[in-house]
Structure formats: structure tokens, C-alpha cells
Amino acid sequence: MKFKAIFSFLGLLLILFIGIPIVKMMISTDPSTLLLTSKEPEVYSSIFLTFRASVWATIIALLTGVPLAYILARREFVGKKIIEGLIDLPVIIPHTAAGIALLTVWGRNSLFSKATGINIIGTEISISIAMFFVSVPFLVNAVKDGFKLIDERYEKTAITLGATTYKAFFTVSLPMVKKSIISGSLMMWGRGISEFGAVIILAYHPMTAPVLIFERFQNFGLKYAIPVTVLLILISLIVFIFIRIFEDK
């Protein structure tokens, strides 16, 4: 009994630490202001843009990150630890630094821009790029851990039953890591939405929700920043709970 009480108490401290600021912020906003804020075109378009850009980033990460995760989980090769370190790096480095690093590759004076004549800075594409860079580790690592848990002999069995390597991957391995892929994508998508540092360096405009919150706080103060923040949190919460319920089924 004592054990349970102590553990519950320690866990409760953590929940309160996260919960109190959010609840406090929510109750400080009256519903009518919230409704009004949600009808502002600048607000809803920025929230929609944030969600959308993060979806693009997550889709690209699925296409490239799942194969990478599979290789990292299944194969041993020279330099594997370096690649794994590289994948973890975006989590550690300051995101403004990440934004600057991205600017050297995708910026106006970059080789890419000069060679193609395309400028992506200040577009939705650059927002997705920033989000991708900082949040892709969540997806790759989750899916890699998922593949690691799956016995290779499942694939081998599929191959003896006549499947090609591709078929074995798509009909056996991939369905078996479905949960890791869903939760990895969710984590990545969520992390993408919240990204501020790298995004603001690549695109101040069009304004994502975190940038909009920052801007309103800077120019008009706390009172104007809170409704947008609450709105973003509420929508994110609803989406996450909905997906978690769906995932359990």
C-alpha cells in the first residue's frame, strides 16, 4: 500500500507541474474571446497551416524514415553508430541553430537556390523542411525500436513460403510495426506543430501558430497571445485523444 501511495504521489507531482500552467491559462480565457479568436482568419489559417505543414513533413519522413529505420534495426555495418548519432542530433542542438544550418542549404544564396532558381524561403515548403529536420528523429527511432522487437524469423518464414523480400516486408514486417509507425508519426507530427526556432528562421511568413503566438506576445502582450495558445492546445489535444482512441481499436 505504501509503495503505491509513494509512486502515485511522485507521479502526481509531475502531472501537476504540466497540468497547472495549462489549466490556468485555459481558465483565464473566457469562451467568448476564444470563439472570437477562432473566427479570425489570421488565426485559423495559421493553425491550419501549422497542422498541414507538419503532415507534409511526416509523410516525407514515412517514405524515407521507415526504410532507414528498417536498415538500422536489421543490419550491422561500419558507420552505423555515426548514422544513429546523426539522427539523434536534431533533438539536442538548439533549433535556431538547426534553422541556420538549413538556411545554408535551402536559403536564397544556397547552391540549391542558385541551381534551380527556386526560392523556398518564406513558403510552406520551408516550414515543412524545418519541421522535418527537428522532428524526424521521433519517427525514425520509434519505428527502429519497433522493427528491433520483431524476430527476423517471421520474415524468413514468409520467404520460405514463397514471398520475395519486398513481399515479406510489406505483408509481414510492416503490419507488425503498425503501432510503432502510428505512434512515431504522431510524435513527429506533434513535435512538428510545436516547432518555433527552426521555423521562424526559414519562414516568418506565412505565419505558423507558434510564430503567431510569439508575434502577438511581442507586439500586444500576454492577453492577446493566450487565446491563440489555448486554441492551438485545445485542437491539438482533441486530435491527439481522437487518434489514440482510434489507435487502440
Partner: peptide
């Protein structure tokens, strides 16, 4: 090939497991 712990595909039911090689 029958492995020690059988390696039945956990995402498929018994019928789908048996049918796997035929579906392929």
C-alpha cells in the same frame, strides 16, 4: 520451414496464416 517457436504471423488469424503461401 517450421521454426522452434513456430513464427505464426501475429497480425493474421489462423486461416490467414495457413493461407499465406497460397495468397502469395
Amino acid at each position: 520451414f517450421i521454426y522452434q517457436d513456430y513464427m505464426l504471423f501475429p497480425h493474421l488469424n489462423v486461416f490467414e496464416n495457413i493461407a499465406y503461401g497460397l495468397n502469395i
